[in-house]
Design a protein around this nucleic acid. Sequence first.
RNA 1: GCGGGCGUCGUAUAAUGGCUAAUAUGCCUGCCUUCCAAGCAAGCGAUGAGAGUUCGAUUCUCUCCGCCCGCACCA
Length: 544
Amino acid sequence: MASQKNEKMEAIVSLAKRRGFIYPGSDVYGGLSGTWDYGPLGVTLKRNIMNLWWKMFVDGRDDMYGVDAAILMNQKVWQASGHVDTFTDPLITCGNCQSRYRVDHLISDKDEYSSEVEQFFGHAKQIIETLELPESPFDYNEEQLQALVGIFGEAHVPAHETSQYLIQYLDNNHQLASKYLGIFPRMYLHLKNVNCAKCGQNAWQDAQTFNMMFTTTIGPSSSSILDKKTYYNLDKGTRKVIEKTVTSENIETTNNLVYLRPETAQGIFTNYKNVLDSFYPDLPFGIGQQGKAFRNEISPRDFIFRSREFEQMEVEYFVDPAKWEEAFELWRNLVWEWTDALGLPRESVHELEVPEADRAHYSKRTIDFEFDFPIGREELLGLAYRTDFDLGNIQREAGKGMEYTIKGTNERFIPHVIEPSFGVERALMAVLSSAYREDEQNGEKRIYLALPEHLAPVKYCVSPLLKNKPELVAKAHEVYTALKNKHGAVMWDDNGNIGKRYRRQDEIGTPYCVVIDFDSLEDGSVTIRDRDTTEQHRVQPDEF
RNA sequence: GCGGGCGUCGUAUAAUGGCUAAUAUGCCUGCCUUCCAAGCAAGCGAUGAGAGUUCGAUUCUCUCCGCCCGCACCA
């Protein structure tokens, strides 16, 4: 069963590459994990999906407005939204069984921990300062190394591992990690005999953050300590260890740091007031946006299902708090219209009511819509009731009023939000998965994509029946040009024989193949062949 | 990030410490072909990257990169 699933997935990946839908990113240079490039057919299919969405949820509705916000946003956006804090949870791994835990879940007494670390580190700092360490750890002399080993030895770190840690720690401009990172949690758990809950061993590795936000800097900067709140540097002038604390007040100026947005939603919330001022729409109304988001996934996997750079389509629908359930149901139904429009069979789409314990902290209700992908049943899109969490944050942190005033009654409140959130790549993968078919024609296996006509990257393929008959080719060109002008997504193919062309078009999901034969020269009619049934009939070319 | 497996033309496979790295398919050119991958002929196209061992490495070793499976992660 499992291998069957993988076979289908592999067949789709292979087809996608072979026929020019999706290529591995940076392929000629050996690739880059978690990135994918869209080829000529892929980009068209993807855009068709995105345009369909925009038409259904923005242009096609009276209560919707579109925006396109910048990917780079002010730091404070991600602090207010909670992303900065929640993305920097340090994790620690058991070296024996590879179980992973959040460090703060293992340390019961935070105050005691802090004082232990500070005491240790204060002591360590004093020793380090007297050592007058050269800039590169590789230049440390024997005496210096021994002293450093001694520091860590006091903390019951096995001696044979210490110098390796020192290199690791002091390698980066003598930077030392903040107290919940690196070696300190490990030492503490060792001292306190806190063992792995799964295997009972005490074999902790260094604690690491897995910050899922990509960072970059505005303007020139060489800082590499962007995501740490507290850190230590060895001042190059005085050779003193100095402590720096990054706070919300100084963080921008400290590092000129910006994040690549990990979700598009905040670009909507930050423009809520702008749209309100420009249009003052009646509640309920929504703002829709499509765009790239970036998450530094630990382990991108499963083709385009989880990648580090991806495209979202999101709606924030602003409602009277008393009427959120009504709006939730509205969007629940609209989501089903969307999966229908993608051609996804209803029996392959499943609603999953997310229990409170699994919901994000801001959400009072969430439904995940899952799809039966070849890799298994996985989330296709989400529908969440976000309350006034985001606008409330903005009002508090930015000090700008986010309240809505009801016309007439002058009732004022911060609107609540219903958020349907769609992933473009997941939609595309679902479309490819459900469209992928294998059947048999004349005893030969045939692969085709039963793409819905409005999504297919090529709508018509035009061919002369025979390539070596100039009159057929000329007539076919005529038909091709006329169709191309009318429909755009039309392909010309005169390669090989007619059967080959059909198969080639089947593989890229072209719904109709138009062939010009000798009868066409007589009465202008052409044959049109249906991809799914392979049946054909004669029509006049201006009929479609 | 950890553990295991893997990496050869676009795709699917083969082989080798040393001769021009093979086969099919694909693509391409020509001929032919009156509707579902026909045929003939010519051509294009690969050992993931780097280092080491060696007279010589695609083959052996190491590092990196990537892919697959499992774990963990997925606010």
